[in-house]
Simulated scan of single mutants.
Amino acid sequence: MNILSAFMISFLVAAVRCESDIDWNAHQWQAPLPTDLRGPCPGLNTLANHGFLPRNGSNITIPIVLKAINDGFNFESTNLIRSGAKLGLFTTDAEDSFNLNDLALHGTLEHDVSLSRSDFALGDNIHFNETVFSTLANSNPGVDFYNVTSAAQVLEQRLAEDNILNPTLINTVKEFTVRIVESGFYLSVMGNVTTGVAPKNFVQIFFQEERLPLEEGWKRSEVPIGDDNFNALLAGIKNASTWAPSGEVICPWIRIQPEGPVVVVKG
């Protein structure tokens, strides 16, 4: 290898590192103020608490949320992430942005059988619920990690628990898909997207405190989380589950106008 080639390789490596480096001093965790808006998604709340999203939780556009997810988690703009970001606009009357608390609109992105929130029909579907989260927190006993198998078991256990508490819960393929995505999300961004294994303490801090566990040793994924590796992880969770749909076969995306009829866009 000649000197010029070595120089070019060193330059390219440095450029890649420069592009991927995050100034964590600018993204220290801060507890939200009483006036800051937060919603039912721990991932987006965490990004707001670290300043990747506006800390007040307001006026979030699709480009802003896609950049925040990539910067904070090294999660690329996958088809699922883009779709989720666009669906956020269905929860508000604003033309091109949403607030984090808008996402609590029942039936769009928010859903029954959450890993960390109560169902809409049972009361508070925005704030973290320790009792609900205990199903995940206590899963995979005897080891210090969660994995694909335990994630699938948690989905099944939460559904069984919720069926008792909320006989009107919605459990179509849409809700199941969102729940699988959420499970794959915590396994990948708090752990390893390839192995589907995440340390328990990282996951618990993520949900309970809505904080990136930097002090505990967490690091942003070195491998970009994208369509291929993330979809493979989702397939593993799905295959490990014995889920079956119940209730309505049609799974609409629902937008309830403040003073008007329900607008249904069938998916």
Rank of each mutant, 00 (worst) to 15 (best):
10 S>K: 14
259 E>Y: 01
156 E>F: 08
142 G>W: 05
116 S>I: 10
103 L>E: 04
210 E>C: 13
145 F>N: 09
83 S>M: 13
77 S>M: 05
180 I>W: 05
171 N>M: 09
240 A>C: 10
150 S>W: 03
96 D>P: 03
211 R>P: 03
195 T>Q: 11
197 V>G: 07
180 I>L: 15
213 P>L: 03
78 T>Y: 00
6 A>V: 06
264 V>A: 06
134 S>P: 06
127 H>L: 08
8 M>D: 11
3 I>T: 14
229 N>L: 01
226 G>P: 12
106 H>Q: 05
199 P>M: 05
237 I>S: 07
185 F>W: 09
247 G>V: 03
87 L>K: 11
101 N>W: 02
120 F>H: 14
19 E>I: 12
1 M>W: 07
138 N>F: 03
48 A>M: 03
227 D>V: 11
79 N>V: 09
104 A>S: 15
158 R>A: 10
29 W>S: 06
146 Y>E: 05
165 L>V: 05
233 L>M: 04
247 G>A: 11
24 W>K: 04
144 D>A: 14
45 N>T: 03
261 P>E: 02
223 V>T: 15
121 A>E: 08
6 A>L: 14
199 P>T: 09
237 I>K: 09
218 W>V: 11
2 N>D: 15
229 N>A: 07
59 N>V: 08
231 N>H: 05
261 P>W: 02
250 I>A: 15
74 N>I: 08
108 T>C: 15
115 L>A: 07
114 S>C: 15
74 N>A: 07
74 N>W: 05
146 Y>M: 05
163 N>A: 12
189 V>K: 01
5 S>Y: 04
159 L>G: 00
27 H>N: 08
90 F>W: 13
